[in-house]
Amino acid sequence: MTEAVEIKPVRKSIEVELAPLDAFQLFTSDMAAWWPATHHIGKTPFIEIVIEPRAGGGWFEVDRDGTACQWGSILAWDPPHKVVFAWGLQGDWTFSPDLRKSSEVEVRFTPMGDSATLVELEHRHLERHEAGAKIAEAVDQGWTPVLAAFKALIEKK
C-alpha cells in the first residue's frame, strides 16, 4: 500500500492539576469517567471502557446490553510516562485488527512542578485508514496542482 501522502498528525496538549501517575490512571483505568458518552460504536451506550494494562492488550467498550466492541489495542504501556494506542476503527465504525490499517494515538504525561502534569496527545498515521488511504491514493495518481495545494494546506497547520 502506498503511503506517499501522509496526513499530518493531530496534536493536542493540556495541563491538569494532578501528578503524572494520577493523570495516567484517570486516562487509562477510568476512561469511561471522562470519555464523552456520545462517542461509542455499540448499539447501546457504554458502561465501561476497558484498557488492558500491557503492550498487546485490548481497548474496548462494554455496552449496557453486555456486548464488547473493540476500538483498538495497546502498542506501548509505560506508566506514568506514556501510553500508545492503535486506533482500529474504520470509516464505517467497524473494527479492524490489522495494524497496517490502524492509526496510532500516543499520550505522554510530563510532570510540571509538584502536582501538575502536561498531557500531550498525538494521533498519527491517519492515512493508514481505508478512507485516508483512498484519498491519498487518489491524489497520488499524479503530481498535480491539487497535491501541491493539499501539501500546502497540511503544512500550514
Binding site: V16, E17, L26, A33, W35, P36
Partner: peptide, 12 residues
C-alpha cells in the same frame, strides 16, 4: 480530541 481532552481535563 479537542472535545475529549477537555472532558478529561474537567474530570481531572
Amino acid at each position: 480530541w479537542e472535545r475529549n481532552l477537555k472532558a478529561f481535563q474537567a474530570a481531572a
